[in-house]
Amino acid sequence: MTPADLSLTVLHAVRRAVGDGALRVAVPERVTVERPRPGGHGDWVSSVALKLARAAGRKPLDVAEILKERLQRSPGIAAVDVTGPGFLNLTLATGAQQRLVREILRRGPQYGWCAPTGQLARLSHRADVRAAVTADALRRILLSQGFLVRTSCEDAADPAWAELGVRMEAEGGPGHPPAGIGTTTPDPAPHHPPALIAPRPAPHPTRELVRQLGGAAARWGLLSAAAHDVPRLGDDLLRQHEGNPLYRVRYAHSRSRALVRNAERLGFRSAAEEHVEDGRVLADVLGDHPLVLASAARLRAPDRVARHLEAAADALLDFQHTVLPVGDEKPSAAHRSRLALAEAAGTVLAGGLSLLGISAPDQM
């Protein structure tokens, strides 16, 4: 069960409670879940009962107990505990890891994507290279979350941005319609001002960045720092060393693909048949991917995707050595399950890099 699936499960429990009269409250549009803090328990935590209590005219603990009764009957949930003032602690049923891995492999690089919402997100960015690349990455991320997206530049665009994969729609100010789309289609939300994308500017012009770093390293350097931080744009982004986060992420993806190729030579393929206990950290990171994409879209923060990819890469690189049989070992269900988890990690890394506009080489 993915975080998005679990959020829907909790939301359905709220709807059932309202539908059968146990709660009198407006059903929220969405419900969030998050990982428990240190010292907590369960796999996920939701504070929905605390948020609904005042509107329902009930104590948070009472609301939590009402929702607990309905959540306990939900497939995929093994246990629901109410803690503190009314937090719902959710423990997933046995087989949740296998279902997660199968879901990632089924969805491929589009794991974490949402169905089209019909909502329009309008972005306007300053006429500097970091703002342009950030807006381009946000366009990709917002599209993955089901939005229609229109971007514009406040001033004339730099033609060199194209060397960094930036796709221009309009320039010269947010009132200019996107080329090809806005010129023929009326803007359904003209009264909503576009979100201004204005991260701290890069200290180098576009052509110097491209000449020094190339497209992939330049984009990573511009996108991986928070908007208020100075971007890291030194030659260390080109080093094939574990201290270079871009190299670690791309190398981890290539290791995932190499494991799949080596397994084929040994005569077996991936299959999520068993729970991989020492792969729990990796599985947890992969399970967070949809939440990371949603928060990156909501907060207009592509650096969250970059940091998440670093965490996934580190978890995979720690796990990779246990995947293939050693010596005279014969491939077993455990090996197939480990390989499936590693393959799923590579899938998430490739999908995340694509949203940042960066390729994921199969070999390095």
Rank of each mutant, 00 (worst) to 15 (best):
R58S: 09
H125M: 07
V18P: 03
D158S: 12
D362S: 14
M168N: 01
H289C: 06
A227Y: 00
G40L: 05
G112H: 03
Q363S: 15
L67V: 06
G42I: 07
R126W: 08
A360F: 11
R106A: 15
P60D: 09
H204T: 10
G346W: 05
G215N: 02
G108A: 09
L196S: 07
D362R: 14
H192M: 13
L100H: 04
A78L: 11
V25D: 01
L105D: 11
E103Y: 00
P201N: 04
A56P: 02
D62P: 00
T94L: 08
R200Q: 13
R211L: 07
H192D: 14
V285R: 14
G351L: 04
R338L: 04
A312E: 07
G76Y: 06
S47F: 00
E208Y: 04
A283M: 02
A263M: 06
P109C: 04
A252M: 10
H192P: 00
I358Q: 05
R269C: 11
L92T: 10
G214W: 03
A271N: 08
A263Y: 06
R300T: 01
L50A: 08
R269G: 15
R250P: 06
P178G: 09
P36R: 05
A334W: 10
R250K: 14
R239F: 12
G234K: 04
L355H: 06
R150N: 01
R102S: 14
G182N: 04
A170Q: 04
A179N: 05
V166G: 01
T2R: 12
N244E: 11
K59A: 15
K51L: 14
C114T: 12
D81W: 02
A160V: 11
G279L: 05
A156M: 12
L209S: 04
A162N: 02
T117A: 02
A93E: 15
A131F: 07
G175M: 07
A340Y: 02
T183I: 09
T94R: 14
S124F: 01
E273A: 14
D318E: 15
A179D: 08
L92K: 12
A93L: 05
L52S: 05
R126E: 14
M168K: 02
E103R: 15
L142D: 02
R200M: 11
L223Y: 09
P36I: 07
R15Y: 04
V18S: 04
G267N: 01
H191Y: 08
P201C: 01
H228P: 00
G180M: 03
P28V: 02
D318S: 13
E274R: 14
H241V: 13
P174E: 10
L316N: 06
L353A: 07
V281K: 07
C153A: 10
E277A: 15
P190V: 05
V260D: 08
A263H: 05
G146P: 08
R265V: 07
G346C: 09
E65Y: 09
